[in-house]
């Protein structure tokens, strides 16, 4: 059985969201945390029909090829968005070769895709186990970063409210961190546990992770937020407990690990569904999916607006697909 536990599933989804969170761009404030929580709540609501379909038995993907095909497209698209984020952020986290133009960026993306391919080829179980370990280690590292940030944090930064007049903007930004909810909606029926518990764990973890990372960033980098291209990365770089040794190397490791397992978490269900849709491609399904993700990444790197629209629209797409299946089942019953 290619099953994974609810905890493992929640970990895989959280790791995906953590990577997206690290790649956040633009200023952050306390309102951002509120926007993030509101976005997460909407994502939770969008997942209700998915939970309904799975709890009623039958799952989502048994209802037809269209639903499976759409899920594959969404997963590949989100994988592309993840690669585009990697390329945008690689410069500030000091990934070697990224400064060598398109070749360097492609090399960095291909290396990450190669590692993700190895994880994906082990199956969903491997992914679940790895994601659980990565989540624990990542959590400990983030805790280390936050503790070290305590030295350089300033509480008055919380009062700085540059984005107070744009809650809707922050809400959309929070809504765009939807990779994890896509992972959980596409894999929930593969777990041995009730989807309610997996989804519950995931959103509880997401709320803690998101608010703590955003608030830490605000506390550390709030004063210079206007200069911050990537506020979370900047906060990690600024939070140095010692004068010389740099704790942000820890951040680079967490960033890379979340990138690999995030890409794998999106690629694994996509590969599984591709194998079901096109049995002849079963042998190369993971390679094909990751190659398409890289191609989608190139597109989203070229058209940033398309990427933003796609990531914001994902919860709506998940809702529409699952609600359609749910209503069709009810009508049939």
């Amino acid at each position: 059985m290619n099953r994974l536990s609810g905890r493992q599933l929640a970990a895989a989804a959280l790791v995906t969201d953590a990577f997206t969170l690290f790649c956040l761009r633009g200023g952050l404030s306390a309102v951002s945390a509120a926007g993030f929580l509101a976005g997460a709540l909407v994502q939770l609501l969008a997942l209700l029909p998915v939970i309904g379909c799975i709890s009623a038995g039958g799952g989502l993907f048994s209802s037809g090829r269209i639903v499976s095909g759409a899920a594959v497209l969404l997963l590949i698209g989100w994988g592309g968005a993840l690669f585009a984020m990697l390329w945008r952020t690689s410069g500030v986290v000091f990934i070697p070769w990224e400064s060598h133009g398109p070749f360097g960026e492609l090399l960095v993306g291909a290396a990450l895709a190669g590692a993700a391919l190895y994880v994906t080829s082990g199956g969903l179980r491997t992914l679940g186990r790895c994601a659980a370990v990565a989540a624990v280690i990542g959590g400990l590292c983030l805790l280390g970063l936050m503790l070290s940030a305590a030295v350089s944090s300033e509480v008055e930064n919380l009062a700085i409210n540059r984005t107070a007049d744009s809650f809707p903007r922050e809400f959309l930004r929070g809504l765009s961190l939807s990779g994890g909810s896509l992972v959980i909606s596409s894999m929930a029926e593969l777990t041995g546990e009730s989807p309610k518990r997996s989804v519950g764990r995931y959103f509880a973890g997401k709320a803690i992770l998101g608010t703590s990372v955003i608030l830490t960033s605000v506390l550390v980098a709030g004063g210079v937020m206007e200069l911050a291209g990537f506020p979370v990365v900047m906060a990690a770089q600024l939070s140095q407990p010692f004068s010389s040794q740099r704790i942000d190397s820890l951040f680079l490791i967490v960033f890379s690990v979340c990138g690999v397992f995030g890409a794998a978490a999106l690629a694994a269900p996509a590969a599984e569904l591709t194998g079901r849709l096109f049995p002849k491609l079963r042998r190369f399904r993971s390679v094909i999916v990751l190659a398409l993700m890289l191609a989608a990444g190139l597109f989203f790197a070229w058209s940033e607006t398309a990427g933003r629209v796609f990531t914001i629209g994902t919860p709506a797409a998940v809702f529409l697909l699952s609600a359609g299946v749910w209503l069709k089942r009810r009508a049939g019953a």
Binding site: P96, W97, A111, T126, I253, S256
Partner: peptide, 15 residues
Amino acid sequence: LGLFGVSLLCCVILA
């Protein structure tokens, strides 16, 4: 690939 490469290798070993 620097620390990025070492991190990727860690992921592969873990997998």
